[in-house]
Design a protein around this nucleic acid. Sequence first.
RNA 1: GCCGCUGUGGCUAAGGGGUAUAGCGACGCCUUGGUAAGGCGUAGGUCGUGGGUUCGAUUCCCAUCAGCGGCUCCA
Length: 611
Amino acid sequence: MRALYIHADSMEFEAKEKTKAAEEIPAELRSGRMEEVLVAFITVESGDEGKIAQVASEASRDLLSTMEKVGAERVLVYPYAHLSGDLAKPKASVEALDLLTEMLKAAGAEAHRAPFGWYKSFDVRCKGHPMSELSRDFKGKEEKRAPKGEDSYFVLTPEGREIQIGDYGGGSECMRAMIDKEALGKEAPAAGEPEYLRLCRKFGIQWEAMSDAGHMCLAPHGAMMFDLISDYATQIVNSSGMSVYNVKGTNMFSLDEPAVKEHADLFGDRLYTVSTGKKSFVLRYAACHQQFAMIRNWNISYRQMPFGAFEVADSYRLEQSGECMLCFRSRRLNMPDFHVMCRTVPEAQEYFAKLDGDIFGEIEKIGRDYDMLVNFSSRKAYEENKALIEGLCRLHNRDALIHLYPDGINYYWTVNIEYHLLDQMKRPREIGTVQIDVGNAERFGITYADEKGEKRHPIILHCAVIGSIERYMYSLLDTAVGIERSGSPGYLPVWIAPEQVRLMPMSGEFAGAAAEMASRLRAEGVRVSVDDTDATVGKKVRRAKQDWCSYAAVIGEAEVSSGRLKVYVRSENRDAEMGEGELLARIKGETAGFPVRPMYMPSELSRRCEM
RNA sequence: GCCGCUGUGGCUAAGGGGUAUAGCGACGCCUUGGUAAGGCGUAGGUCGUGGGUUCGAUUCCCAUCAGCGGCUCCA
């Protein structure tokens, strides 16, 4: 069902001529005029036929709330066949429109309905305020959450106290913002374009206009950052000390598979689907499908557990186009998805806590901090896991915002933590996450043999230690914006800086010396570029600074003869004198333990295209 | 998805009913330089796209696409 709402000062209509679908109506109802009215032009579509009650109910709820928002005194349900090319049969349409009108009346609204199936003339005077024209598309979905109870929020302290939101006065700035956003449903509006977008442009991170909305493309610097983060995410889980199986999956799964279909139904309307004409596929929204589909065929003994499976999975979610946000919410994202198969709930809790430590450790490495939003799928899940979360609160010495979902819904998870950081726009952003899954092992048929040789379903942990690759990148760029705001030049950690060293030969005479130094450093895994253009020294320095090179040094007579360099150190915004060996040692120190990749574009500036 | 704002050479922008301007960048010549822009010159645009109004539209109107902001959504 499609609808167009117009909040009107006045609306006047007259039925002129019958169409073949016209309903019989008494003459006095063929025309009408009303004022201060919300006119709802409505098209009933063929897809609505099997679920007229749901659609009408959804529409009536929305109409009532819109009436209240705009302050309309009455509502006119106006049959209007022109909002869709796929109309329901007239009988079903009339039924839906009548039902909708009755529902509105039953809720106490003054509701009217215009004749169906007539050519009507009308004269509507739209108020013209921002909410005066709205369009809607009602799908008549089943309510996902049975209205059995309400979501509830409170704060859990390290001492195990539960504090109601209204009584809670403490907490970090992030915690306050998170409470406002999650529990109270209000968010401070941020003005203007966020600054990290400027950095995205600098590093060649942008939307691909020739694709669907929400698809990113990465020029060489951005591509290199992406690959380094992906390497890093892989390295983290593989050096965790756990047994890890690295896999590579495909990104589409058939909806004919009951497990896939069931899982997809839970995911809801953000499914991204592909049809080949014969079959429908769902694009995976995380690595779950692939890893579960693989592991269900593995012959697993309790002796080998726990173990994890890992993939940086390209994942697809049909986000609302207006909701897409570069590096934060995209329709295609890359999830370093880690699933740990545990024997029991206590074991799952133990590893949950371990992953929590890894998650906090990683955000601290980039100089940031998290606050926790902990979701529980039921009161029972809360009781079972409260001690676990309380322990984490103590460990991190901070409160957690608790969200209890209403009881009675069969979620696959029992508890999950969303780790939020407060970005430069003062908005909480979820980056890392971990959850306990008690449902999917059974759904996908994953079993292990316990001590008695009996088949059991494992408890599965889901975890993104650094969040999606894109969101980790967001965290880095947001952190750089924070550095800029403190008055220093923004910079990236050296391990991920696209250009770690820029050498600037004074003139052609020193090009050879610079090239040799560059190749020595490069052999050590350092990304070095050489500004071998014929620009002046001042210009080269300016360019090196604009390019956010971590280190930059002019190579001229003095350097060649003394072997000492005057190196501009971006992170300190000053020049430091050092030899080539000291520069190398310094970079080695700063990048120790992080992945290494060579530059993704020509090192010599004279060979580079402008991008 | 909805509402609003924006859309001018590769980039950043100015302008405005009579087919357009600057800076950067590119290219060429000169300059061979010491830590954030050396000098001179050349090329490059059917003003997002499609319609409409007009003698004439890049400018006004409508539609459409894209970007940003807000809303909604975020199993």
